[in-house]
Amino acid sequence: MRIASRGLPPLVAGLAIAYPFLVPNYYLVYAGALTVMYAAMATSWNLLGGFTGYVSLGHSAFFGLGAYGTGLLVTRMDVPWVVALLVSALLVTVFAVGVGIAAVRVRGASFVIVSIALVSMMNLIVQGWRSLTGGSTGLQVPSPFPDLHRGETHMVFFYLFLALLALALASWWYVSRSRFGAGLRAIREDEDKAESLGVPTGAYKVTAFALSALFVALAGGLYALWFGSLDPIFVFSILIASSMVLMSLLGGVRHLFGPLLGALIVAPAGEYFLIALGETQIHLTATGLVLVLVVLFMPDGILARFSRRRAGPSIPDETAEQRLQGVAP
C-alpha cells in the first residue's frame, strides 16, 4: 500500500508528460492544457489558503494582471514574450506585497471581502482605462509561435503549464517542510498564539500572499500568450478565483496534491458541461451547488479521507502521569 502510494506521483507525472501523445485529437490536448493551467493556479492559491487558512476569492486579480501585463508588454513595447512574462509576474508580485500589507491586517471574513473587492476594482480599472487596455473590447496579443498551427500551440502550452504546475508543487512542498511553513500553519490554527511565540505573522502572511500571487500571475501571462485575446470580464471574473478555491477545497487544502486532484475533477467536468449543455449559465449553478456541498459535507477534501488516520482522541492520561513519575526531576 505504502509502496503503491510512493510510486503514484512518478507514474502520474509520466502519464502527464505522455498525455498529448496519448490522446486522439488536439481538442483533448487543449482541454488538458486548460486543466493543467487550473491545477497550477489552484496549487498556487493553496500556498496561501492551505497554509494560512486565509481564503482569497480575489486571486483572479493576479491572473488578470499577469495576463494584461504580459499582453501589454508584448504589444505596446515589443518585449520578447519570455521577458514580458517574467517582468509582468514580478510586477504583480510587488503589487501583491502592497495589497497584502493592507489585506492581511484583517482576518477571516473581512479578508475575503477585501479579496473580492480587489478583483472587482481591477476589473473596473482595466475596463475603464481604454487608452491602455482597449477597455471592454479586449486586448489582442500576437502568438509567440506564429509558425506553429493551432494544435501544436496547444501542445507547447500544455508543457509550459505543466512546468508551472511542477514549480508550484515544488514550492508548496518546500514550504511545507520548512520552519516558515510551520509558522504559516500556526497562523491558520491560532494567529495570536503564533505571534506570541515570536512568529512575525504579518510578514509571513504577506510573503505567502505574494508567493501565491506570483505563480497565479505567471499562469495569467501564459494564458494571454496562449489565447491571444483578453476579455477583462473573463480574466478578472470572480469565477476564476472561485474555481481555484473549489478545486483546492474539493481535493483537500492540507495536502500537496489536493488542489491538483480537485482540478482534475472540476476542470474536465466544466468542459464537459460546456459541450453537453452549450453556453448556458447553468454551469454556474453546478459550480455553486458543488461548492455548497463540499463546504457542508467535506470541508477537508477528498484526500483527507485517504490520508493516514490519526491516533484518535484516546491517548490515555495515565501513561503521561506514569511517565512523569519516571522522569528524574
Binding site: R177, S178, R179, F180, G181, A182, G183, R185, A186, E189, D190, K193, A194, L197, G198, V199, P200, A203
Partner: peptide
Amino acid sequence: FPRMTVLENMLVAVRRTRLRELLAGL
C-alpha cells in the same frame, strides 16, 4: 495548535527572523 503534531508545535517558535533559519527544513 490543535491540528499540528506535537513536534510541529514545538518548531513554530521563532527566536529571531532570519531567512536562512526560516527556509531550514522542519
